[in-house]
Design a binder for these strands. Structure first.
Length: 531
RNA sequence: GCCGGUAUCGUCUAGGGGUUAGGACGGGUGGUUCUCAGCCAUCAAACCGGGGUUCGAAUCCCCGUACCGGUACCA
């Protein structure tokens, strides 16, 4: 049985919600990795629904069968879950306005198209892609805007029936009235007017029976009883089409808000090459979801108390749609890292240990693409083998891991930094420094050797007291006529293999005496004899 | 090309007819210090341009310019 729009109106009745409750949605298309722009829309919509006692819908806009990517829907749902902004209704569960995948609502769009045709607001078009292309080229050659030329506008019902019977492919186009100014109010931008002569007779139903975005979004927003449409600014110029469709259906349009598009450092729309467009990228770097939300809201909204770092709930309770920034903000990785570092510290070592452990296991389970995680971000390449080794060592001794995390937590900006910087505490990763680094501090290899041998011999007693350890090293430096810094650096290099580390004494304490002696021995053994 | 949107330090932004144009990230310098990070102090850094309106414009108006978006049987 074929349902009409009236039938659907009964099937999807108005929601029983308080007067101020806002119903919003995001409509990602499952064509790739979940995008950071989707994350922003989700955060705003989640906040709006929560704040107003309304509903946040996840609707999958999968009307382009050619671009579908298997598994993309699950990834979107997972990304929202990770971010902490799950939808109230969507494909994961059921809801009163289901289904939430457009590909499963085809009869509804068909009924809508039928009604529009019957009312004269739409018409069938039999023009071939080839003809449309040549029309466009001719228009472009004359410097004219490229628009449908209206060839099929005046086809009679009999013409249409005959051509369909003949097996000709067709689409449905909306019939845009001429000579009219179409104005709508954007919640953050104010009135926007576009002349109807600028609006094309857009295809609303494709020849494969799937709707285009324009039809699907209007029909679904109406029947899902959406009150406020929040979407990217790339939709501004399409909005008049939607206004016209609402009018053709006799429906009241929702309110609109077009958010600014996120940019990369060059001011361009965020793209795969320069920026990092997928939510998963930030996740695998070890950005905390709370920090990511803070960052996203921070670049499009100003906290009333001028705070830069705040609980994500502050956004929910304080933001107003009109306050959202309409100029395209640049996604600044430095700011993200700053905020994330602050969030990591706030966790405290115990919770941080759990988060780091879980994150590293997640990376380990990730399959291909692991190396990309560190490329560019640190310049370091960490092999899968190294990752596994670290996870084993790190999680095997929780007490030691906690001490590492407690030592200088402000060194960590991302969860993966614990892996990158924490390797120094595990013998599996120890590499003695090049001899010339050591002699750069203390000149002769024999001097280095003498010093390290003393430190190795005295280590057990020295490591018990910071004051006496410090005094001993300084005294040693004075006796051989070197600045203390040189001697400390020699020891740092010998024990950690690197020139940068947390305060040396704390590092020595963290390592077991056996560890320290083993490392000193390895370093000493590699020393050349005096030239 | 045409249509639309946007325009305050490098970046995110606050403000808004009379202000030392504020904050944060990033950067510089100094301090703390055995290195790095951090922390403290401190400095530099902006109202796109041109016309109006006005006693007075960064703020209001107009015109440019730049950037972004749209101009598909993609969303």
């Amino acid at each position: 049985m074929v349902l009409t729009l009236d039938d659907y109106d009964r099937r999807y009745p108005p929601r029983q919600l308080p007067p101020d409750a806002e119903v919003g949605r995001i409509g990602p298309s499952p064509t790739g990795r979940p995008h950071i722009g989707t994350a922003l829309q989700a955060v705003i919509n989640r906040a709006l629904a929560t704040k107003s006692g309304g509903v946040f819908i996840l609707r999958i806009e999968d009307t382009d069968r050619a671009r579908l990517v298997p598994g993309a829907v699950a990834e979107i749902i997972e990304a929202l879950k990770w971010l902490g902004v799950e939808a109230d209704e969507g494909p994961a569960g059921s809801g009163p306005y289901a289904p939430y995948e457009q590909s499963e609502r085809l009869p509804l769009y068909s009924a809508a198209a039928v009604q529009l045709i019957a009312d004269g607001h739409a018409y069938r078009c039999f023009c071939t892609p080839e003809r449309l292309e040549s029309v466009r080229q001719a228009q472009a050659a004359r410097g004219m805007p490229t628009r449908y030329d209206g060839m099929c506008r005046a086809l009679t019902a009999a013409d249409v029936a005959e051509r369909i019977a003949r097996g000709e492919q067709s689409v449905v186009r909306m019939r845009v009235p001429s000579g009219e100014a179409i104005t709508f109010h954007d919640l953050a931008r104010g009135a926007i007017t576009i002349q109807s002569t600028e609006v094309d007779d857009a295809v609303i139903l494709k020849s494969d029976g799937f709707p285009t975005y324009h039809l699907a979004v209007v029909v679904d927003d109406h029947f899902m009883r959406v009150t406020t449409v929040i979407r990217g600014e790339e939709w501004i110029s399409s909005t008049p089409k939607h206004i016209l469709l609402y009018r053709a259906f006799g429906w009241t349009p929702p309110r609109f808000l077009h958010t600014a598009l996120l940019r990369d450092a060059k001011g361009r729309k965020l793209s795969k090459r320069t920026g990092d467009t997928s939510i998963g990228y930030y996740r695998s770097q070890g950005i905390l979801p709370e920090a990511f939300r803070n960052f996203l809201t921070r670049i499009v909204w100003f906290h009333p108390e001028s705070k830069d770092v705040y609980d994500p709930s502050d956004f929910t309770s304080h933001f107003e749609l009109r306050q959202l920034s309409v100029s395209g903000p640049v996604v600044d990785p430095a700011l993200l890292l700053h905020i994330n570092g602050l969030y990591m510290r706030r966790l405290g070592p115990d919770v941080l240990f759990e988060r780091v452990s879980a994150h590293l296991r997640e990376l380990s389970a990730q399959g291909e693409g692991f190396a990309d995680t560190f490329e560019g971000a640190t310049g370091e390449v960490i092999t899968r083998e190294a990752l596994e080794t670290f996870i084993t060592a790190f999680t095997a001794d929780r007490a030691k891991a906690i001490r590492i995390l407690s030592l200088e937590p402000e060194r960590f900006k991302r969860l993966v930094d614990v892996l990158i910087q924490g390797r120094v505490y595990y013998d599996e990763f120890f590499e003695p420094p090049a001899a010339d680094k050591l002699t750069a501090q203390m000149e002769a290899p024999s001097a280095v050797r003498a010093f390290l041998e003393v430190m190795r011999e005295r280590h057990d007693q020295l490591v018990t007291s910071k004051a006496s350890w410090d005094a001993f090293v300084r005294d040693y430096a004075a006796r051989i006529g070197l600045k203390p810094g040189k001697v400390f650096m020699t020891l740092r290099l010998a024990v950690t293999g690197t020139a940068m580390s947390p305060p040396l004494f704390e590092v020595l304490q963290l390592l077991s005496p056996d560890n320290v002696r083993r490392r000193l021995t390895l370093t000493i053994d590699r020393l050349p004899s005096d030239a």
